[in-house]
Structures are given as structure tokens and as C-alpha cells.
Write a protein that binds this DNA or RNA. Sequence first.
DNA 1: TCGCCTGATAGTTGCC
DNA 2: GGCAACTATCAGGCGA
Lengths: 91, 91, 91, 91
Amino acid sequence: MTIAKDQLSSLIKRIEALEEEKKTFADDIKDVYGEVKSAGFDPKAVKSIIKRRKDPEKYAEHAALVDSYIETLGWDRTPLGSAKGEGAMVQ
Amino acid sequence: MTIAKDQLSSLIKRIEALEEEKKTFADDIKDVYGEVKSAGFDPKAVKSIIKRRKDPEKYAEHAALVDSYIETLGWDRTPLGSAKGEGAMVQ
Amino acid sequence: MTIAKDQLSSLIKRIEALEEEKKTFADDIKDVYGEVKSAGFDPKAVKSIIKRRKDPEKYAEHAALVDSYIETLGWDRTPLGSAKGEGAMVQ
Amino acid sequence: MTIAKDQLSSLIKRIEALEEEKKTFADDIKDVYGEVKSAGFDPKAVKSIIKRRKDPEKYAEHAALVDSYIETLGWDRTPLGSAKGEGAMVQ
DNA sequence: TCGCCTGATAGTTGCC
DNA sequence: GGCAACTATCAGGCGA
């Protein structure tokens, strides 16, 4: 029983230590996003760019697919956001 | 005390009923995405389109900002995803 | 092509309609939680109760397991939260 | 303009580096949970224990509140999960 | 092995 | 404006 105790205790300690490390970096990331904002950049847009860079190929595929669907729907000449009434675009 | 009991009980019952209703629609949505897939469309791309349509203006702003940053970074002529080695693009 | 257009358009419309319905109930739920709070109950605790009721058996199993581990670790006589220094409890 | 470029580029690089570090620890944590499972412990229960330990006071308060509500509702003598028909418990 | 489904993480919104 | 809850997206594990 003591074996189980030591084993479980050890596993918990290890996880807690790792989570603390992880949190350090999560906090650092948050700080840098603070700098991003302070520097006048939009954090959300910056995040998008970083995400794209993670897997550019995947992003390109997705974008191409979305574009093709928009074309299929015939929205390519009536850009989204061009008017308040685009709720009527899908009829 | 009975008053508190009845009140709390009633609130809980109402929430549970509403959650059930909500779940019905969530399930229906999932079903339709199943149809989307069956029809040969990519559910993820369809979801993107629906999201855009929710707030086209917001989407346009965001996209414009991302584009401007990409231009700032000088990536406009070296499209993301064009090469495996673009990890070196930000140097 | 027109077939694809109509099909895709229809699917999108259906999803959007369902999401609107879903949102109605989500909003209603939020309202009731507002009442919960107004009535002096803690919304978070109420939510816990509702969650338990969803699958009581599962909850009971989980709780039993957690308790057994706590016992294994010898924490049953040194309740969590009893002291600031419980970081030292797992050694 | 070059200043903006360098600044933005630097911020992005920093975030990406930090995210990589963060991922390292996330992966390590996952590995340890693998060991937890291999050792015959339930990862979910272990996770619950770790969560409690993070903020024992907060957990205790929450649990006390939930218990008091259950008592208010008169469920303390009809344990949750005792029967299939407990849907009728809240009447 | 593929699809499902739960759990984890990231994004959004509302509150303080 | 920051923080916390909630939602939605995504990945990994489980079962068919």
C-alpha cells in the first residue's frame, strides 16, 4: 500500500511541477501579447498570423476551399460585408 | 426554508428543461453538418462561411489588418506555405 | 453547378436557422442563472448540482475514486485546505 | 516602416519560441498521465486531485455550498444516483 | 482502421 | 481594462 502511495504521490508531484513550468510560459506569452498591444498592433491579428505560420499548407487549403464555396454560392461579386442586408444573400 | 427549497428547485427545473431544448438544436446542427459532409462539402469550410456571414464587417476588418501586417513583414511576395522552410522567414 | 449551389445554400440556411434557435435557449438559460443569482444562490454551485444530476452514477464513481486516492495518499486526516502549507503534503 | 517590421517580427518570433517551450511541458504532462494510467490509476481522478490542491480553500467553499443546496433541496437522504428515476426528485 | 465522443485548449463575451 | 466564465474548436482515446 505504501508503494501505491509513494508512486501516486510521485506522479502528482511531477505533474504539478510540469504544470508550473507550463504556466510560466503561458504567462510569458500573455506578457508578450501585452507588448504587442502596447506597440499598437492588434493582438488578434497577430495571433492569426502566428496560427497561419504553424501550418501554412493547411491554411492555404482551407482558404481555397472557402473561396471555392463562396464562388459556388455566387457571392464572389457581392462581397460579404458590402451591405447591411446581406442576410438576404442566401435565398 | 421551504420557500428557498421550492425556489431553488424551480430554478433548477427550468434550467434543465431549457438545456434539453438547447441540446435538441445542437444535435440537429450536428446532423446537418453530417449532411454537409455526405454531400461532399467540407464541414469546416462551411462553418467558416457561416461564421463570416454572422458578422461580415468584423471579418473584413480582421482580414484587412492581417493583410496589412503581412505586408509590413514583407511576406506578401513570399506567400505563406510556399515552402517547407518558411520557418526562416521571420529573422 | 446550380445543383451544388442550391444544395449548399440550403444546408447553410438550415444551420443558421438552427443556430438561432439554439441561441434563444442559451440566452434563456443565461437569464435564469441571472435569477439564480438575484435569489441569492451561487450560480456556480447550482451549475454543479445540475451537472451531477445529469449523470449521478458517473459522478458517484468518480467521487469514490477520488476519495480512495486521497485515502491512499493519507490525506483523509489532513483535509485539503486546512492549511496554507499543504504544498508540503505530498512528499 | 522598417522599424515596425522589425518590431512586429521580433514579437512574433518571441511568441513562437515561448509557445514551443510551453508545448514541451504540455507534452511532458501528457506523458506522465500516460504513466498514471499504466500504473493503474484513473487519470481523471488524479486530475481532480491536482485541481483541488491548486486552490483547496476555493474547492472547500464550493463543495460546502453545493452540500448546503443539496440539503436545502432535501436530497441528502436520497443520494443522487441511487435510482434511475431520480429525474422525479425535483418536483 | 475509421468514426465517434469525450476532454483540453483557445477565443469570446460579460462582469467587476 | 482586466478577469473569469462560457462557448466553440480541436485533438486524442475508445469502441465498433
